[in-house]
């Protein structure tokens, strides 16, 4: 385990979601449709936040574990204030969270938001695919029925 600090308590849910994604992606989508009205527009912010390569690199860095601004800034050729601005965008989109009461204010990923954004996209891609899979089954059933008649 590379995780030393705070145990990532969202692992289990994320792992299950990942493993069974194709099965309940669509169900998830419909549930989200109804339950996420309060978060309208949040996905827009998520996708806008992810459109920037530096911010994606920051997320990759945070995938290795929480880090302070200084730690995040090290491999980049940009200033800490610039990193802070990127972190703000990521934080506003709900992709990361930061500790308030610590001096170094480490940032870490908020996997739920990431997962819901990825799922939304996967849903669009998987949606017709899942339908076509089901259509395949239905056609097989129809062929069986017809050959009996």
């Amino acid at each position: 385990m590379r995780w030393v600090g705070r145990p990532p308590r969202w692992w289990r849910g994320l792992l299950i979601a990942h493993l069974t994604k194709t099965n309940f992606l669509y169900n998830l989508y419909v549930m989200e449709l109804a339950s996420n009205v309060a978060r309208q527009g949040q996905l827009d912010a998520v996708f806008a936040a992810l459109a920037d390569p530096t911010r994606r690199a920051i997320l990759s860095r945070l995938a290795d574990g929480e880090a302070s601004v200084a730690e995040i800034a090290t491999p980049f050729s940009i200033s800490q204030p610039a990193i802070s601005r990127h972190l703000k965008v990521l934080e506003n989109a709900g992709l990361i969270e930061r500790d308030i009461d610590e001096q170094r204010r480490p940032a870490r990923l908020t996997a739920e938001t990431m997962a819901s954004a990825v799922d939304w996209l996967a849903e669009f891609r998987a949606f017709w695919g899942a339908r076509f899979d089901r259509l395949d089954d239905v056609l097989m059933e129809l062929k069986k029925t017809e050959s009996k008649e």
Partner: peptide, 15 residues
Amino acid sequence: GWGKGYAIIDELLSQ
């Protein structure tokens, strides 16, 4: 680019 989203999740899972 969006494969990045998956890449990050895959990375998390492998960890």
